[in-house]
Design a protein around this nucleic acid. Structure first.
Lengths: 240, 240
DNA sequence: ATCACTCAGTTAATGGTCGTAACTATGCAC
DNA sequence: GTGCATAGTTACGACCATTAACTGAGTGAT
């Protein structure tokens, strides 16, 4: 699945010195890479620059990653995991109302994007050489989506269900999507709300990051709050 | 404003041979650049590769653009203009209902993004060295927004106005935005709908381009239609 | 018609990048 | 200790951006 990830060695196997050093170097590569990316963007992450910052010769990096693209791909999957983790932690153990927790999750998403804007751009923007989107984007983000879906189910339970979309075909596709998530139980209305929240928030955050709102006096958070309201209202009764 | 743009010479000034050749070469640079970008992405656009495809020496390009970044910046503004033009043309002279025309404009946006996906990524994704977002993104896209706003005003005129957002501060910011667009007449509800449509569609299209929906059985166009409905419904009565 | 100037284009060179090849030296298993 | 696997090295080739120095064609004034 992910050839380059650090495999958790829970077994108290006698971790050899070599393995330890290798893991340590790998960690340093990841840390330095993210430092460079956060400071100057992915395009500034070159094998040479990375090696230089580690006081290492450039070819040595190839012992860890077969190419610059492979390194970037690895960093992308790490970032996805990190983003998903940030969203999970935002509601972990929270006893607030489901609707509030939706806001927490979404805000965590935005905060992560703002805090690590270069990484967010790396995930959803650049994709220089069109990375293997397959494995990369699937699992970790699906996990975050599952989280959102659960919250929305809870929201719906606490309010009279309903809300027709008016597009039977779309509902069918949403059912398929639910099945592809191995959650055939979730209703189209919930799936619809989850997807709409994601696309809406991504749209706002993405434009916020490109600076579209900078010159305008719009606060993205207000737009997001409004959009969450809209999406959830969709879940409840039938309309407003 | 834009040092590199071709200035329309409507005056029947005796266009010198030199000027004609220069304009011609500039045109060829733009065309070849877009060809390379469309085929392999911006990251593959190198001065060297461009010059090679024109059977020209690389340093010669510097007679036209002081750096690779300047070239890319120029291509970005051209692309913005092209996108805005595509949106305008989609409804030019259309006698359909305003609501239908909104759909036409938005669909033109998506179609352009799908047809020139690399360029769209260049506009809203990559932005490698954080280009001068100031001049770049302002005028041409504002024009497209103005178009959308006009259509939404028409929509609102044909339906009972109203629709409170519940966020007075946001409404105030929207009023400021309207004034910054030099259109102080547009109501917050209209501005809100315009911005929401833009962010929503951008979010969907952007995720569609990164391939998030590929493995899922969702058609982006259906999501977009749904979102337009939602945004417009917002304009009308008060809720559903 | 020619002279001087401008400027599009050239070759040559610097210093950066990715990536490969060939080598050295260390850790580890026996 | 001997031998293998491997993390690291230096040396290299191919590409890139950009500058410097030069060539030659277009242009405008005499």
């Amino acid at each position: 699945m992910d050839r380059y990830s650090v495999t958790m060695t829970n077994e108290t196997r006698p971790v050899s010195r070599r393995e330890r050093l290798r893991a340590q170097t790998l960690q340093e590569i990841e840390d330095e890479s993210f430092a460079i990316i956060d400071a100057e963007g992915v395009q500034a992450l070159s094998i040479a620059a990375l090696a230089r910052s580690m006081a290492m010769s450039a070819p040595a990096v190839y012992r860890y990653f077969p190419s610059r693209d492979a390194l970037v791909a690895h960093l992308v999957t790490l970032s996805y995991r990190q983003l998903a983790a940030a969203m999970s932690q935002a509601v972990e153990g929270s006893r607030k109302a489901p609707r509030t927790r939706v806001r927490l999750v979404v805000t965590a998403y935005r905060d992560w994007a703002l805090r690590y804007r270069r990484r967010y751009g790396m995930l959803f923007g650049e994709r220089a050489g069109d990375l293997p989107s397959e494995v990369t984007t699937r699992t970790p983000l699906d996990q975050a989506m599952a989280l959102l879906v659960d919250l929305l189910v809870a929201v719906q339970d606490s309010a009279p269900a309903g809300g027709a979309s008016g597009d039977r075909t779309l509902d069918g596709q949403l059912r398929l999507w639910a099945r592809s998530q191995e959650r055939p139980d979730i209703a189209p209305s919930v799936a619809r709300a989850a997807i709409l929240i994601w696309t809406r928030v991504h749209g706002i955050v993405s434009l916020e990051l490109t600076g579209v709102f900078d010159h305008q006096t719009l606060e993205a958070q207000r737009l997001i709050d409004l959009e969450i309201d809209n999406a959830i209202r969709f879940l409840g009764p039938t309309g407003a």
